[in-house]
């Protein structure tokens, strides 16, 4: 049973209020020949920089996001020996504790699956046109992935506003002005953001 590349790569950008069914994607990549399934689930956490996060809201340039993800999966396949890949990203409001993104990769051996899984989520954060607004009790802010900013490199055009970090934060000053004064702290997500990694490997 030889499935084509398309059949073995599942990419889904989910509409608002559609929770990511993690089991569905894990099952979609399972196969008798795969000894490993590596997964990554990105989950909204309840605080950022001491502020209470109410929810995250995602939006995407959907056709381009799908196109980029296909390209990323294709290059992952050229680098590692993989069986199936599934990538799902949720849009709209995502309550704290829910998964916003999920990657599942199957391979004969775990090192291929694990390395490819990390590559795919790293590339997603660096180049797939999806945006998240973090909503606090007293304001909101568009987040910026450090993976994207690093890949852009130093700005070739001198900008008086030092990139886009300034005047980005719209948080009411109920905790004093220090939040407004340190946009960098808001900006660099460090890619952690309460993510958890689950590795389901079987012999």
């Amino acid at each position: 049973m030889a499935l084509s590349f398309e059949d073995k790569t599942l990419i889904e950008i989910l509409d608002e209020n559609c929770r990511i069914d993690l089991n569905k994607y894990v099952d979609s990549v399972r196969s008798p020949q795969s000894g490993a399934v590596a997964t990554f689930a990105g989950t909204t956490r309840d605080t950022f920089d001491g502020k209470v996060v109410v929810e995250l809201r995602y939006e995407a340039y959907v056709p381009m996001a799908v196109r980029r993800l296909k390209s990323i999966c294709s290059s992952a396949r050229s680098t590692w020996n993989l069986d199936s890949i599934a990538v799902a990203h949720r849009l709209g409001p995502v309550p704290v504790g829910d998964s916003s993104v999920f990657v599942a990769v199957s391979a004969v051996h775990r090192s291929d699956a694990l390395d490819a899984c990390k590559y795919i989520i790293d590339e997603l954060k660096a180049s797939v046109p999806i945006w998240k607004k973090e909503v606090y009790e007293n304001g909101e802010v568009w987040k910026e992935n450090c993976e994207f900013l690093e890949r852009m490199g130093p700005s070739p055009s001198p900008s008086p506003s030092k990139g886009c970090c300034r005047s980005k934060v719209r948080v009411a000053e109920i905790d004093g002005p220090d939040h407004m004064e340190s946009p960098e702290a808001e900006t660099l997500d460090k890619g952690q953001n309460g993510k958890s990694v689950v590795d389901v490997a079987r012999k």
Partner: peptide, 10 residues
């Protein structure tokens, strides 16, 4: 032509 501000998916 799409104007892409810093992305923040994931």
């Amino acid at each position: 032509l799409a104007i892409i501000p810093p992305i923040s998916g994931g």
